[in-house]
């Protein structure tokens, strides 16, 4: 059952991304593999569903990140992201 079909943004995916990354990546700059636009992960469009999350480019709708919980696996597909630049600042988050 998924009655709240939510479209949020990369901010909301921060918790799930922290299962993978040691640092917060919502402030990281991601380059879209489709149109080349550079922007913060927090500002990507999120399409959440029961098993994971899809982040799309706000400019061209390319799927930049797919993060899926499958039984026994956490599967990350970043083929739509050409560069992920994570700021080197100390983050308390």
């Amino acid at each position: 059952m998924q009655v709240e079909q939510m479209r949020l943004d990369g901010n909301a995916a921060g918790g799930m991304l922290r299962e993978l990354f040691a640092r917060d990546v919502t402030a990281a700059l991601a380059t879209c593999g489709g149109c080349g636009k550079v922007g913060p992960v927090g500002a990507l469009l999120e399409y959440g569903h029961g098993m994971g999350v899809v982040l799309r480019c706000p400019s061209c709708d390319t799927v930049m990140v797919r993060l899926v919980h499958a039984p026994g696996w956490l599967r990350l597909d970043v083929s739509g992201t050409s560069v992920l630049a994570i700021p080197d600042t100390i983050s308390v988050s």
Binding site: N11, G14, G15, R23, T26, A27, G42, V92, S93
Partner: peptide, 10 residues
Amino acid sequence: LRGPIGGYFV
């Protein structure tokens, strides 16, 4: 719950 989360909208 888990958190705090987020380094962009801060």
